[in-house]
Write a protein that binds this DNA or RNA. Sequence first.
DNA 1: CGGTCCATGTAAGATGTTACATGATTGG
DNA 2: CCAATCATGTAACATCTTACATGGACCG
Lengths: 214, 214
Amino acid sequence: MTLRFAVLGLLAERPRTGYQLARRMERSTDYYWTARHSQIYGTLAALEAAGQVVHTVLAGPGPRDNKAYTPTAAGLDALRAWLTTPTAPRAERDEFVLKVSNLWLLPPDEAIAMVRAHRDEHAERLARYLDFEAESKLDNASAAMPEFATYATLRAGVGYERHRIAWCDWLLDELDRRTRGHQVHRSRTGVTPAPCGADAAPPRRPSPTATGRP
Amino acid sequence: MTLRFAVLGLLAERPRTGYQLARRMERSTDYYWTARHSQIYGTLAALEAAGQVVHTVLAGPGPRDNKAYTPTAAGLDALRAWLTTPTAPRAERDEFVLKVSNLWLLPPDEAIAMVRAHRDEHAERLARYLDFEAESKLDNASAAMPEFATYATLRAGVGYERHRIAWCDWLLDELDRRTRGHQVHRSRTGVTPAPCGADAAPPRRPSPTATGRP
DNA sequence: CGGTCCATGTAAGATGTTACATGATTGG
DNA sequence: CCAATCATGTAACATCTTACATGGACCG
């Protein structure tokens, strides 16, 4: 259902065609929902069937008709109702963090390279966001203007990238610290041999607590 | 494909049954991929067909056989290969940020209430994460131990929640500031009326320090 | 005259969620 | 005795991605 509201929200700003919506939603910078055009056209049809948008044909330049969609009063009501509904916490799915949870399987140098690459990518994104931010001048825009809302989402992106970078830096630091001392034992096979102590008998019960908690 | 590797990763730590995997993956705290059991059993079958895991039947307490899965050498190789593959930036889908991008449609008091509720939820989650963190003592665990990797993902969670909270605080502040002068027009609705002074246009740059970092 | 942008659609497939189904053991 | 936990599976559905299809206008 969320895509419906994402589309409605963009249409509430100003009428757009399916193509324009697709352009806007194919990247997620400063917006936070993506969709391909194949999804969008279907969604627009569904919204229209539900009486939440209407379209006017504009006979644009292409061979196709140019359909500009506008939300109806019912559509805007639905949108506002959705806005105030508590947001169910979405399942966090983060492929990189998942990889990090398996980092112990990699030799230290590869682990470090991998994190470093990720860090750089986020640094680049942060730079892009900051460029956007510098361009957007909204001075004393009121909270009732779309410009302010857009700016607020951009700030979310900036904060997120900063957090990501800080975390990568911390990780790199830790990886360095926690491999130092063990590096001595590395003899040209890429794998760390057991360094010392506690060789036998890690407890290994099927332990129900080990399965994890809430 | 990602789920395959998520499962392989957990099995690399220690053998588990489908049920145990499902327990671990139904919440996303300190892990970062979720799945229902209905997905997991299928994935295990696919992994086995691909020769990446094998199972041994343990005739557990239930009426069903208790199948414990272990990765094969081929499975571990595939997992390590995946770890070093560059992570394609996943489409960011964040329902709350999407809502914020439509915030201009709401009357100020409702907007503020909505953000506040979100903030509180994240504060609660942060507290839970910090509890976990306090419990996990890994002192000088090496980077080659699963415990460290798990701890690293927990740190990601902590950083994320902190960023989220800081962003909400910033937003609440801005919403307050940017509606003040406009509140004069709202009569008797339980919301702070404009107190005094600074009615029109104080410079109000979007001070970047306000976002606050980890 | 070949590629990119405009512009709208359909179809097949992968992935994820919800609901259905079964049945033993343990604790209140 | 009723509910929860253990334990594994299937089926229907919703959602998302990728690929196929069409064709005019404009630029180099």
